[in-house]
């Protein structure tokens, strides 16, 4: 299928990955995100940003979410106007409101969520103690003139 021939999918492409709680497999998610972003005609800089944001979300799932689970899920959806990436773990959950913005130039860690927020258009976090965490990353698709574009 060509980059723009999405008629049979009504402009909606969905990719679902179930990844083991093993750091080496994050590169698989990064590669999938590259393919998806490329199919949306995003430029190289935008694709790199998406790779970083997705990797940070996966790393958080492994480091902070999956102490009590073996797998986590990544869903990437190309839909009208945006690329939506959802990373879900079914681990112990955490109080994300306690996560503070890093002090740039001072802290040696804690940059993950900050980088996602900095590089993407929107970040949503839903975490419940004992149930797990869902992170939604939104990247708006824009025309080269800055207006939002459709995948149709």
């Amino acid at each position: 299928m060509s980059k723009t021939d999405l008629k049979n999918l009504d402009g909606h492409i969905k990719v679902e990955l179930v990844l083991p709680n093993i750091p080496e497999y994050i590169s698989l998610a990064r590669y999938s995100a590259s393919v998806m972003a490329n199919s949306a005609n995003l430029n190289i800089d935008e694709i790199e940003d998406i790779r970083v944001a997705l990797s940070e979300a996966c790393a958080n799932a492994i480091q902070y979410g999956c102490e009590t689970c073996d797998y986590y899920e990544v869903v990437m959806e190309l839909q009208e106007g945006e690329l939506l990436i959802t990373v879900t773990d079914h681990g112990q959950g955490y109080d994300y409101k306690q996560v503070k913005e890093p002090v740039i130039g001072e802290q040696v860690g804690g940059f993950g969520l900050y980088l996602i927020r900095s590089l993407m258009d929107n970040l949503e976090i839903d975490s419940n103690i004992g149930e797990g965490t869902t992170v939604k990353i939104h990247k708006l698709l824009r025309e080269s003139n800055g207006t939002e574009k459709s995948t149709k």
């Binding site: 990064r30 790779r51 970083v52 990797s55 940070e56 790393a59 802290q107 040696v108 860690g109 804690g110 940059f111 993950g112 980088l115």
Partner: peptide
């Protein structure tokens, strides 16, 4: 590519 873990190593190295 480098992620926040690698960046954290560089930060810790300097600090």
């Amino acid at each position: 590519y480098i992620d926040s873990t690698g960046i954290g190593i560089l930060m810790n190295l300097k600090k």
